[in-house]
Design a protein around this nucleic acid. Structure first.
Length: 566
RNA sequence: GCGCCUGUAGCUCAGUCGGACAGAGCAACGGCCUUCUAAGCCGUGGGCCAGGGGUUCGAAUCCCUUCAGGCGCGCCA
């Protein structure tokens, strides 16, 4: 049942009855609001906007309307300029829960996408570098958005745009040829490669000729030299091995791994096209697109030596993806330090005449730092994702040992919870907030945390496991404030999913899981479920089942797999 | 210097495209397990919503301004 439509019709009728004002359609009325607390009803109609039209004070309008309402299945009250609608408790419970149960895992999955394609560019790790917490936000947010978009009916292409090209590989290979040790690299590939890279930098400060050597090696990669490519692919493979292990732990998969190397030879077309369209200017030897009309610095396209720049290749990538996938939207999940850069290259694509430029979105998010300062490998301020995951999983494992020593599959459960606790870090707050990472905060599992929500889910599962089937619910048994709070949240879930997708904000889902868990835990504390009179028990079991299903769905959208026991 | 972002309780943050007394969690203190998972629940204290102007019936929310912090600003990505 569509409560909103029902109430809008009711209001529309009351307005014309009381004031003789006709609204052509119910949707011409001010929108219904969801009141902040349950005692203010399930829906509220604000009368403030009518005040101007009717030239009466809002509270008076509310009073008059309240008296004019007829045939509403529930209660209506006027309160400080609002008309509050209290839907019949039993009906609200019955209708909402029936909706959740009928839809099952699809509850909240309104088909907004209609099969349209969305490319999501996120995570984008660098070859020969470690996967660290600086990559956590793009990885977790991108993954959540990918799942959210799929959930609402889009076809998604998740893309790991690998950082696998550039002169830094020349440096790494040069360093390897000078000081490398195959056994060390085989034992601990990425750390060893990073150490070589750092050593190269240090030595190059003393001996600039090393940089020439690095450039020469990169040139050999570019020109297909056999030895250079062999080493390059070796380094790439060992790094990807490391990285894939982390992705496997996180439960994250990509449809495409086409990165910088893949697009390294595909940017010529961009330069030609920019030139043909008269957009390219030469300034101090470099080629660029002037953006002063749009109050932005120019977008550099070619270096003085004719080499491409990041924007050149990103534009080429966007054009290639448009041809390949014919996307409706592309989302770039990248930190806000690149805000200006994305505006520039989106604008260049627009100036090239591609109207779809407006469908490229930069999903920006805050920076991660440590309490000691900005992340810096060389400064010793670094937290590697694999270490964080291991510590998180170990801590969960220890808690399980203490609280649930008889649990089966302890390791599998610990992994699910430990991983979720890590994913939670960038998904908990609004994307734009900076994160000052601390192990204490990350590994605190009390309160508004992934383990808390998962615990609530397991609690629901535990109750449900004790009884196979039931029927004959007495929904009037769910009239207490605690049950009603749960039901209100269940009712709100589909609109929260919609909002979260629209705002590209997974944290709205995260917050919802906390709200629902809190509401259910209060309900659980106040009410006995099993062993009550059968119709009461059935109603509370249905509420429990709906809560479990929606928690599972919502956590799933965040990329978290909730165990049934913990 | 210019531009973008952020500023809400001791700490981390919510606050629904202006609306009903500003809400959680953490930390502190005090309660609640012989019954469905205490990784839980309840209670107490804690706020000139950075400061100042303005718009509005109504502002944490919009505009102006000041301050504080972060990020960015042509050959890195």
């Amino acid at each position: 049942m569509d409560f909103k439509a029902m109430i809008s019709d009711t209001i529309s009728a009351a307005v014309s009855a009381a004031f003789g004002v006709e609204f052509p359609a119910a949707d011409a009325l001010p929108a219904l609001e969801l009141p902040p607390t349950a005692d203010m009803g399930d829906f509220a109609f604000p009368c403030f906007k009518l005040a101007k039209l009717l030239r009466k004070a809002p509270p008076a309008i509310a009073e008059t309307l309240c008296a004019a309402v007829t045939g509403f299945a529930g209660e209506v009250k006027a309160a400080s300029g609002y008309l509050n609608f209290y839907i019949d408790r039993e009906m609200f419970a019955r209708e909402t829960l029936a909706g959740v149960v009928a839809a099952g895992a699809d509850y909240g999955a309104e088909d907004i996408g209609n099969g349209r394609v969305v490319c999501l560019d996120y995570s984008s790790v660098n070859i020969a570098k470690s996967f660290h917490i600086g990559h956590l936000s793009t990885t977790a947010i991108g993954n959540a958005l990918n799942r959210m978009y799929k959930f609402v009916g889009y076809k998604t292409i998740s893309i790991n745009h690998l950082g696998d090209w550039g002169t830094q590989f020349g440096k790494t290979i040069a360093a390897y040829k000078l000081w490398g040790d195959d056994d060390k690299i085989k034992a601990n590939p990425v750390n060893e490669l990073m150490a070589l890279y750092v050593k190269f930098h240090d030595e190059a400060e003393k001996d600039p000729s090393l940089d020439d050597l690095a450039r020469a090696w990169f040139k050999r990669i570019e020109s297909g030299d056999e030895e250079a490519l062999r080493i390059y692919h070796w380094f790439k493979d060992v790094t990807l091995g490391d990285v894939r292990r982390v992705y496997d732990t996180l439960g994250i998969h990509f449809d495409s791994w086409n990165g910088e190397a893949f697009f390294a030879d595909k940017w010529g077309r961009v330069v030609d096209e920019l030139r043909e369209k008269g957009l390219l200017q030469v300034d101090q030897g470099a080629s660029l697109v002037d953006l002063s009309d749009y109050k932005m610095p120019p977008c550099l396209i070619l270096k003085t030596d004719g080499a491409s720049l990041y924007a050149t290749r990103d534009i080429a990538t966007a054009l290639w993806r448009k041809d390949e996938y014919n996307f409706d939207q592309t989302l770039y999940v990248v930190a806000y330090e690149q805000d200006l850069y994305f505006k520039q290259f989106f604008k260049v694509i627009e100036l090239m005449g591609y109207e779809w430029a407006k469908n490229l979105h930069h999903v920006s998010f805050g920076m991660v730092s440590l309490e000691e300062g900005a992340l810096s490998t060389r400064g010793g301020r670094m937290v590697y994702l694999e270490d964080l995951l291991n510590r998180s999983i170990e801590k969960v494992r220890a808690i399980i040992e203490e609280k649930s020593p008889n649990l089966a599959d302890k390791d599998a459960v610990a992994q699910k919870i430990g991983v979720a606790a890590v994913l939670w870090i960038p998904l908990y707050n609004n994307r734009i907030k900076d994160i000052v990472f601390s192990f204490d905060r990350a590994l605190n599992f009390d309160g508004e945390t992934a383990p808390y929500v998962m615990y609530t889910h397991a609690r629901c599962c535990s109750v449900l496991a004790k009884i196979a089937s039931w029927s004959g619910e007495d929904y009037a048994a769910l009239s207490d404030p605690q049950a009603q709070d749960v039901i209100r949240l269940l009712y709100a879930f589909p609109s929260i999913v919609k909002d979260a997708v629209e705002k590209l904000e997974p944290s709205m889902i995260t917050r919802f899981t906390v709200d629902l868990a809190q509401a259910y835990n209060r309900f659980y504390f106040e009410n006995r479920i099993l062993g009550e009179a059968k119709p009461v028990e059935a109603a509370r079991l249905t509420l429990t089942r709906a809560t479990r299903d929606v928690l599972k769905t919502a956590l799933g959208l965040l990329g978290m797999d909730a165990p049934e026991k913990m």
